[in-house]
Nucleic acid binder design. Structure first.
Lengths: 189, 189
DNA sequence: AGGAGCGGTCAACGCCCGTAGAATCAACCC
DNA sequence: GGGTTGATTCTACGGGCGTTGACCGCTCCT
């Protein structure tokens, strides 16, 4: 009645546990923000002990960093109309599948210095990229307003509980935002 | 050489101290948010003892409530163009003199349940009022997007350090936002 | 003038947090 | 198969927080 082979090797077990902790951390950070998410809560959600989390990630800070690093932003370019459509497509995408890492950073940026830096830097990169794609003297202001609009939609949906922005079909929202984006991506003729 | 009359009566002293605490609380809550603002810090900024703050306001919760209650929102109405202009004027106003109470609520809403409720309720009221002023079937979606834009601008300016939104003259920003607001306040003909 | 009442201070309690280090047990290597 | 390593848990420490209640001194009423 012996169990000659363990289900998972030690390395596999380690990877699985680490992944479970990272998933729980991302979810809880996105739900409650950095400060209100305790290591004990993350450990509980991942069904391990808090000490193990520290042992694997060294500190809460480092865990947050690991749990919130997302992929690079998709570049935009082309004619102003094309740029506008690409941004609208990004909005539609974020309306459907919600980027947990971004939400975690957004929710934590007001209480955690590291998240704040990450958010500021990420937003700045996005703005710079937008600015390059807009042919106008005041491209930087326009890019900032576009970014502000995207952020405002995300904040309203997730933090201010604008249910109408959750229930309305993405296409309808996109259609309403299209004139805004078009006017912001193209200087008046 | 006696000082027969005190500079301030006891009641005046009391009011002055309370006002000093409320002002310090509002400023610190707006700067650092509910959680990261300690009663000891507020007391220090107001040059009193932490125990006195508790004695006057009962709890941190109650102090926050007292420090962040702002005046009622200004109503909007008229033709879609007029509504758009009124909203633009509100944005311009908030760009110049920053409403501390609103900022405190905005910064605290992610960490404090009371602030979250206040923000959600305040935003809902504003949306409802906007919605009434917009003659369109999807007025509620349009109102939500307008609110989201205003919030996005505030968040970008204050939390994401969009310097360009601080340095650019309000009129220029308003001019760029005008087409957005006009398209959102008026259904396509 | 003198006692009551209020503005204000001080020290302490209890809680929860991040973190550290010893202890336990099973998997791995030779 | 026995020592070793690594995964995991347990217990505890130190610090900061909101909150409390005893205490002091000045001001007000009579």
């Amino acid at each position: 009645m012996s169990e000659p082979r363990p289900r998972l090797s030690r390395a596999e077990q380690r990877r699985a546990t680490e992944a479970r902790i990272l998933a729980a951390a991302g979810r809880l950070f996105a739900e409650s923000g950095y400060d209100q998410t305790t290591i004990r809560a993350i450990a509980g959600a991942a069904e391990v002990d808090g000490g193990l989390v520290m042992h694997y990630f060294g500190s809460k800070e480092e865990l947050f960093h690991r749990a919130t690093q997302a992929g690079p932003v998709r570049p935009v370019g082309g004619t102003p109309e094309e740029v506008a459509e690409q941004i609208l497509a990004q909005i539609a995408d974020s309306l459907v599948n919600e980027p947990i890492a971004s939400l975690a950073v957004l929710r934590s940026m007001l209480t955690h210095a590291g998240a704040s830096e990450a958010a500021i830097e990420g937003a700045a990169r996005y703005r710079a990229q937008l600015s390059d794609a807009i042919p106008a003297d005041d491209a930087d202001v326009r890019a900032a307003l576009i970014s502000a609009t995207l952020i405002g939609v995300a904040v309203s949906r997730h933090f201010l509980k604008f249910d109408v922005l959750r229930d309305t079909p993405p296409e309808q929202i996109i259609d309403l935002l299209r004139p805004c984006l078009r006017s912001l991506t193209r200087a008046d003729d």
